Each structure stands twice: as C-alpha cells, then as structure tokens.
Amino acid sequence: MTGATGLDLALLLLRVAAGGFLLPHALGKLLGWFGGPGLAGFADELRGFGLPARAPLPLLLAGVQVLCGLAVLLGWQARLGAGVAAVFLLATALLALPKGWFWMRGGAEYSLFWVLTLCAVALAGPGRWVP
C-alpha cells in the first residue's frame, strides 16, 4: 500500500469512527433515538449544568450536532463539521472537569479524547475517499 493510499485509508477510518460515534449521540438528543434523552431530556441536561435551555436552543444545538456528525462521517465539509463538533466536546469537557479526569467518575477524559480526535479530522481533512 502506498503512502498516499495508506494515509487516505487512515483518514477514512478516523472520519468514519469520529462521525459514526458522534452522529448517534446527536440523534439521541434530537430525536430520542438509541436510548437518548430527546429534546426535553437534552434541555434538562443543559439546565443541570446551569446553561440556558429555552426553546429553540436545544433544537438548534442538537441539529448542529447532527449536521456535524454527518459532515464528518460523509467527508462533506468535514473540516468545518469536525471543528464545530470539537468546540461542543470541549465545552462538555470543561463542564465535566470539576468531577476530575477519569470518565468513569464523570470527568473530562473521554470528552477530551474526542476533542483531539475531531481536531485531527479538522486539521487533516477527510482524505480522498469521500462519496
């Protein structure tokens, strides 16, 4: 496998993993799919963090997250989608930071992992293998 082909395969795997994991979480917030909270539950989560949750904010945030997940997964506007999603996940990490580092205790570790993964997609781009 040539270097360019290997790199494009790596970018495809990174993009499919990042978008493929991000999208179901976003759809759970937007539509309640995959055991997600739906918009009402998402609004409750926002309020639980002391954030504004009046309509239409939860709908807009969940909608943007869905679009970001699709963008990363499909490679269409992947840099922008990954960058915006990284900002969302960074906010999540900052909100979790008072609970410490470890994800198993509600800390920031897992969110920061996804921030770095999405930053890699944003910096590298989608690669050549896009639909």
Rank of each mutant, 00 (worst) to 15 (best):
L51H: 11
F42C: 01
A55N: 14
L57G: 08
G41T: 13
D44M: 03
F34E: 01
G35Y: 09
E45Y: 00
L46G: 07
L57C: 11
R54L: 15
E45S: 13
D44L: 12
R54D: 08
G41D: 13
A53L: 02
G38E: 02
L46A: 10
L30C: 01
K29H: 14
G48K: 07
G32W: 11
G48L: 02
R54E: 12
A26F: 06
L31E: 00
F34C: 03
L30K: 02
A26L: 05
A40Y: 00
F34I: 00
A43E: 05
G50W: 11
A53M: 03
E45L: 10
L39A: 05
L31F: 15
G41I: 12
P52L: 12
F49M: 12
G35Q: 07
W33Y: 12
G38L: 03
F34W: 14
A40E: 15
L31W: 13
A53P: 01
L46S: 09
A55E: 12
P37D: 09
W33C: 06
L27D: 06
F49A: 13
G50T: 10
G36F: 10
D44A: 15
A26P: 07
P56G: 05
A26T: 07
P56E: 04
W33P: 07
R47T: 14
L31H: 04
K29W: 07
P56V: 00
L57F: 13
W33I: 04
A43C: 06
L39Q: 05
G32N: 08
A55K: 11
G38A: 02
A53C: 03
A53F: 03
G28D: 11
W33E: 01
K29N: 13
F42E: 05
G50Q: 10
G28L: 11
F42N: 00
G32V: 03
E45D: 04
R47V: 00
E45M: 09
G35C: 02
G48W: 04
G41L: 11
G50P: 11
A53R: 02
L31Y: 13
L30V: 02
R54C: 01
G32Y: 02
L57R: 06
W33D: 01
G48P: 00
L27M: 13
G35I: 04
K29G: 14
L39F: 04
L46C: 08
G35N: 04
P52S: 08
A55T: 15
A26W: 00
G32Q: 08
R47N: 11
L39Y: 04
P56F: 02
D44E: 15
G36S: 07
G36E: 07
A53D: 08
F49N: 14
L51K: 08
L57K: 04
L46T: 10
K29E: 09
L27C: 10
F34Y: 15
L31R: 15
P56Q: 06
R54S: 12
G35E: 08
G38P: 03
P37E: 12
G38C: 02
